[in-house]
């Protein structure tokens, strides 16, 4: 199935309430792809991601994940098939790192307690944080919190994992190590990643393709492999974006 589209947006009107942030957004994300939502601050890339993860309904058009729209009937099924890492990590502060990963396993996996614990520890090991299992989120660094959040997002072996600004607030070395983690997880598990970012180093390192948004035009202005987008000289916004490093 690798290569076929798992996410489809057709003429989506993105926004919240009465506010339209982006109009007529259409693209597909292929299975196993690392797809980047790219653009400057406030351009609507996180808004599009919130539509994709079912937090906000689209204002128009159609958005499907594996052929299913975000309806009340499909919600439970779709939630099992996606994982999300929010910008802050959004780990539950009253739980240890291990308990954060155990939570979705306890609720949905149907595994016995020992198997759940074994899987959670394996996930922590896969993000190289097995020694942080008993620590509270407040006791670990921002980069470590994001790694634990990725492990939690991977807990139910989702088809697609969404990452919101994974490198935000991290030093370049830690941000780069997160990129390597994403590449390794894709290689090992074949997971599809959709990443919201404006950091070009990360885009070039991880992205198979990127959709680019412009706040001024309230539109998706380009889509394609990052290296090709960077060569475009016909669009002033794209040229300036890449020449100034995002």
């Amino acid at each position: 199935m690798e290569g076929s589209a798992i996410i489809k947006l057709e003429h989506v009107k993105a926004g919240y309430g009465d506010t339209v942030v982006l109009d007529d957004v259409s693209f597909e994300v292929a299975r196993g792809e690392i797809f980047i939502l790219l653009g400057g601050s406030g351009c609507g890339k996180t808004t599009v991601m919130k539509h994709m993860i079912g937090l906000n309904p689209v204002l128009g058009g159609s958005l499907t994940i594996d052929g299913m729209e975000w309806t009340d009937d499909n919600r439970a099924e779709l939630c099992r098939r996606i994982g999300v890492m929010f910008q802050s990590g959004a780990l539950f502060g009253s739980m240890t790192c291990l308990e954060n990963i155990l939570l979705p396993l306890e609720e949905f996996s149907g595994l016995k307690a020992a198997a759940r614990r074994e899987k959670a520890m394996a996930l922590l090991s896969s993000v190289e944080l097995a020694d942080a299992a008993g620590k509270m989120p407040s006791e670990i660094s921002g980069g470590m919190r994001k790694r634990v959040a990725i492990a939690r997002a991977m807990a139910l072996d989702p088809d697609v994992v969404f990452l919101d600004e994974p490198g935000a607030g991290l030093d370049p070395i830690t941000a780069s190590s997160l990129d390597e983690l994403v590449l390794r997880l894709r290689r090992e598990k074949g997971t599809t990643f959709v990443i919201v970012t404006h950091e070009l180093a990360s885009v070039f390192k991880t992205g198979d393709r990127a959709a680019m948004f412009d706040r001024a035009r309230r539109a998706m202005v380009a889509i394609g492999p990052p290296a090709e987008l960077a060569k475009r000289v016909d669009d002033d916004f794209i040229r300036r974006f890449f020449s100034r490093g995002g």
């Binding site: 959004a90 539950f92 939570l103 609720e107």
Partner: peptide, 16 residues
């Protein structure tokens, strides 16, 4: 604080 920190969104996207 959980809402501001997106923890509630995390619960919702987990289907909880």
């Amino acid at each position: 604080a959980m809402k501001v920190d997106e923890e509630i969104d995390a619960l919702v996207t987990m289907g909880l």
